[in-house]
Amino acid sequence: MADRIPSDHASVHTERAEVARSGGTRRPCLRLPSALDLEQGSFVTLVVDGEARHAEVQGDSTGLLIRGAYDLKSEARDPGRAENRLVEWLRNVGREPGDPVEIDEIEAGERYGVRLPGERAFYRDTSGPGGSLQGIAESLDGGSDDDGDDPFDLD
């Protein structure tokens, strides 16, 4: 299994997000496309400039957005005086309200990455072996002939 997944890999779904301002703050945030099917109040991992950060999906009158990305999940829950790595990155790359960024869906509902349009990014592959322990055991056993009658039937 690969250690890194490129942003143009077939398993990575990319959407266009927009830098915006929301509410009375002067800080930029990301306006999320509805195609990502995220829920307000959920927490996601957001890879910003190659580093995994924590972000809360928030909402306003026009849709969903991410106002910040933080080193720790506790900081995403209560940003207070924590360093906002998303705002820091947006300023470093010269993105302002109205400018596009790419948002890569690495693991739906869980893990996303942001990058400049036209740039290629690499993401750490954090996927496990896939499937349940029972599924792994069955593959080692050569399959299952479970007929559904007895959950303890091993024959």
Rank of each mutant, 00 (worst) to 15 (best):
M1W: 02
D3T: 12
R4G: 00
R4A: 06
D8W: 06
A10V: 02
S11M: 12
H13Y: 12
T14D: 05
T14C: 13
T14W: 00
A17M: 12
E18W: 11
R21E: 11
S22W: 00
G23K: 04
G23M: 01
G24H: 00
T25H: 03
R27T: 06
L30N: 06
S34T: 14
S34L: 11
A35D: 14
L36H: 03
L38K: 05
L38E: 07
E39L: 13
E39F: 07
Q40H: 08
G41I: 05
G41F: 01
S42V: 06
T45Q: 09
V47L: 04
V48I: 15
V48N: 10
D49K: 11
D49V: 00
H54E: 10
V57C: 03
D60K: 06
D60G: 09
S61R: 13
S61L: 08
G63L: 03
G63P: 02
L64T: 02
R67M: 07
R67D: 05
D71W: 05
D71L: 09
L72S: 12
L72C: 06
K73S: 12
E75D: 15
A76W: 07
R77Y: 09
N84V: 07
L86Q: 03
L90F: 08
N92I: 00
V93R: 11
E96W: 07
E96S: 13
P97F: 09
P97N: 02
G98A: 05
P100Q: 03
I103N: 00
D104N: 07
E105D: 04
I106T: 01
I106A: 01
E107I: 05
E107M: 03
E110W: 04
Y112C: 05
G113V: 00
V114P: 04
V114R: 02
R115G: 11
L116F: 04
L116C: 11
G118I: 05
R120Y: 00
G130M: 09
G130E: 12
Q134W: 01
Q134G: 06
G135S: 15
I136T: 14
G142K: 07
S144D: 10
D150C: 14
P151H: 06
F152I: 10
D153Q: 15
D153S: 13
D153V: 08
D155H: 14
D155W: 12
